[in-house]
């Protein structure tokens, strides 16, 4: 019966993968979040995570294929079996851990606040250039308070369903929050001037500001910890522990020999490996 079903299924649905032995791994990614994962003019995926995933697959000796999925449905589609792992700049957070399991973190980037160069906020200068919201010291609390005060009543744009959205909702509920389905849309609206502040991974804004002749500027502090989670990792279905362990081993070895550091330098201009 099993075989019969597989044959019938293969007529309609290709390719067919068996979960038991991982020789074929399908990687879900967004393809719209450069420099993590983007799409170039040749229609191909490119970015730090694409290079890294190819490297990891080589190390694991498995055949990898990329599957593109909108951010909106990226976790539901993993759970539905459209692919086996998400490698899409996804931060490790408690909220997501309820639905998926994460590999060890491979890269981590702070979150940046971006404003228009000629707005008053451009001159905002807090006493610390970066804060980790897991810390509870007085200086961190003070700067956090300043950021919250800065965002009050402002129109803040984030990509929907991200750590950045969570931060604004938890820390600055008085801001007017606008959510976008892709980072590109957020960038376009930031450029159009519909937003006072944009919040995303620093790398995502750097990429935009380098490509477009915009007068946007990122302001300090860069944010991490708290709702921003524990770095970026691969996400797996809860019952695929074997695959997750395979990735963990490969990530650890690629971190240890500096491969991920080198890839991140290539795409981000700095080492953001964990």
């Amino acid at each position: 019966m099993n075989k019969l079903f597989a044959i019938i299924a293969s007529l309609f649905f290709v390719p067919l993968t068996l979960s038991a032995d991982w020789t074929e791994v399908r990687i879900g990614t967004e393809g719209a979040y450069p420099p993590w994962n983007g799409t170039n003019a040749a229609g191909e995926l490119e970015g730090a995570e694409i290079d890294m995933a190819n490297e990891l697959c080589d190390r694991m000796g498995v055949n990898c294929t990329f599957v593109v999925q909108d951010w909106d449905g990226i976790i539901p589609a993993l759970l539905n079996g459209k692919y086996d792992v998400i490698i899409a700049g996804m931060s490790i957070t408690d909220e997501r851990k309820e639905k998926v399991d994460f590999s060890v973190g491979y890269m981590t980037d702070g979150a940046c606040l971006v404003v228009s160069g000629d707005s008053q906020m451009a001159s905002f200068s807090p006493s610390k250039e970066s804060i980790n919201l897991f810390n509870t010291d007085a200086a961190t609390k003070q700067v956090t308070g300043q950021v919250v005060a800065l965002l009050k009543g402002k129109t803040v744009g984030v990509q929907g369903g991200t750590i950045h959205q969570n931060f604004v909702e938890q820390y600055a509920p008085s801001a007017e929050l606008k959510t976008y389905s892709t980072q590109d849309d957020l960038n376009l609206d930031m450029g159009a001037g519909r937003l006072d502040v944009g919040l995303a991974d620093c790398g995502a804004f750097d990429d935009y500001m380098a490509k477009a002749d915009s007068n946007l500027t990122s302001i300090q502090p860069t944010l991490s910890g708290g709702p921003f989670g524990d770095g970026v990792g691969g996400a797996f279905r809860k019952d695929d522990d074997d695959l997750r362990e395979m990735f963990n081993a490969a990530i650890k070895s690629a971190l240890a020999d500096g491969t991920i550091g080198r890839i991140s330098k290539e795409w981000f201009g700095r080492d953001i490996s964990m």
Partner: peptide, 14 residues
């Protein structure tokens, strides 16, 4: 698929 005793994941072409 589960009813037919198949426990893998099936990718449906986009």
């Amino acid at each position: 698929a589960r009813i037919f005793g198949y426990n893998g994941y099936i990718e449906i072409n986009a």
